[in-house]
């Protein structure tokens, strides 16, 4: 393995980890603040990707299409929160799992009705469609660097929001004890809508950024949701710090595992271990710390 290749794979792992973070942070926020297990979270990623595909057909300026896609997702998130999610906050986790799984099926079918079954085309903006030379022989796609940068900025903005603003303070307080925060005069309903929209926007941002890289089609968010759930379990359910650390760990372990295990164990066994590495990590973490790396909720 050359140094250039290690560097390239480090970029790949980082980028994969940051996309996972965009998904996982929403899952963990919804659980931490609203006690909601949301299996429809992958649908928000899918909506983000479909909205950028649709917006890019109408609007040529990429930044405008980008903003339009996120605004459309926000509208969809508000509707979903008010119509479906709100009654679920007080229900048991099994009810939430069933209801949100139903939502994901409904949204998957809805995009087929609107945009058809076949995958949509999403082009990256021209000014991001090049490569950067990492070493003399290896060049890296500019667009993948942009994904990492956008996800890192979104994470930073989220941290500023939570740590430095009044809304963030209320969200953190709501995560500790929603009833008391309500009793102190905070409009918990609005607070919850805000948290749900922020979660959805982060997932949709992942979808918008992944659009040019993966197949934009019905159900595209579901495989990422499964990985995001693994990340949340590893990091500790409800913990933002845990989501970040676990996302990066999963991204890097998965990426380097694909390089290293086949070299050590041969193509056949190495492939199997590489494909299972995320879940092996999850099992190890749960064995040592049942509530995850940074979890303080009883699992």
């Amino acid at each position: 393995m050359t140094a250039g290749l290690v560097l390239e794979q480090a970029f790949n792992g980082l980028q994969f980890g940051m996309v996972l973070f965009l998904m996982a942070v929403g899952v963990t926020l919804a659980f931490g603040v609203m006690n909601l297990i949301n299996l429809a979270h992958g649908s928000m990623l899918m909506l983000g990707a479909y909205f950028i595909a649709a917006a890019a057909q109408k609007i040529t300026a990429y930044p405008l299409a980008f903003v339009a896609a996120l605004m459309l997702t926000a509208v969809a998130a508000v509707l979903l929160e008010v119509v479906v999610m709100r009654p679920l906050y007080r229900m048991g986790h099994l009810d939430q799992v069933l209801a949100t799984f139903g939502v994901s099926i409904a949204v998957n079918e809805a995009v087929i009705m609107v945009w058809g079954r076949e995958a949509m085309f999403v082009a990256p903006p021209d000014w991001l469609d090049g490569t950067v030379a990492l070493t003399e022989t290896i060049s890296y796609p500019l667009y993948r660097l942009a994904i990492t940068a956008v996800a890192a900025l979104a994470g930073l903005a989220l941290w500023l929001l939570l740590a430095r603003t009044r809304l963030g303070m209320r969200i953190r307080a709501g995560a500790e004890n929603g009833d008391i925060v309500g009793a102190l005069g905070v409009n918990v309903r609005l607070l919850f809508i805000g948290v749900f929209v922020i979660s959805s926007l982060l997932a949709a941002l992942g979808g918008v950024m992944l659009g040019p890289l993966i197949a934009v089609q019905s159900g595209m968010g579901d495989p990422l949701l499964i990985l995001a759930l693994a990340v949340v379990v590893i990091g500790g359910v409800g913990s933002l710090k845990g989501a970040l650390v676990a996302s990066l760990a999963v991204g890097l372990i998965d990426t380097f595992g694909r390089m290293i295990w086949p070299q050590w164990l041969g193509d056949v066994v190495g492939n199997i271990v590489a494909n299972a590495s995320v879940y092996i990590l999850m099992a190890l973490v749960i064995a040592v710390r049942p509530s995850g790396l940074y979890g303080n909720h009883a699992a």
Binding site: Q15, R144, L210, N275
Partner: peptide
């Protein structure tokens, strides 16, 4: 020179493409 089988749900092939190039 190499063979790789990826899980059905894998969405990102960057790591595998880098291996192919290497």
């Amino acid at each position: 020179v190499g063979q790789t089988y990826t899980p059905l749900t894998q969405l990102d092939f960057a790591a595998d493409i880098a291996r192919i190039r290497a």
